[in-house]
Amino acid sequence: MKIPSNLAKSSLLATGIFWVIGMTDGFHINMMAFMFISYIPVFVCCTGTILLTICPFYFFGETKHFSKRQVFQRFYPYYSIVCFALCAYGIYENTNETFLIGFFVAAFFTTMQSWIWFAKESADETV
């Protein structure tokens, strides 16, 4: 599993989504510095979330007779539904907080894409 590259890509994606939504409240050129710096806390959040909630599926699920593709097909649908429900609830509870909405939207899309990147490693190997 290519965990470091996955974490780097996921953090970049999350930072991008977070700031695109955050900027809808207004954008000032001085915010650019914060955008670059925010990569660090976002990376920490992504590392925790991906290592704790996605990697275990591949660590414990993947065996000689059960490929990454099968792990993805078996668990990803339920993970995506639970993740969506939690993020939607977070957004519903914070409808006036643009940055929190950005956080939950980024969390949802990043975890979804992170699963795909892990699963695609096996597809890339077989192609």
């Binding site: 995506s80 979804m112 699963a119 597809a123």
Partner: peptide
């Protein structure tokens, strides 16, 4: 997550 799923399946 239909788009994500299709993205993976296509690959």
């Amino acid at each position: 997550a239909g788009t994500f799923h299709r993205n993976f399946e296509d690959k």
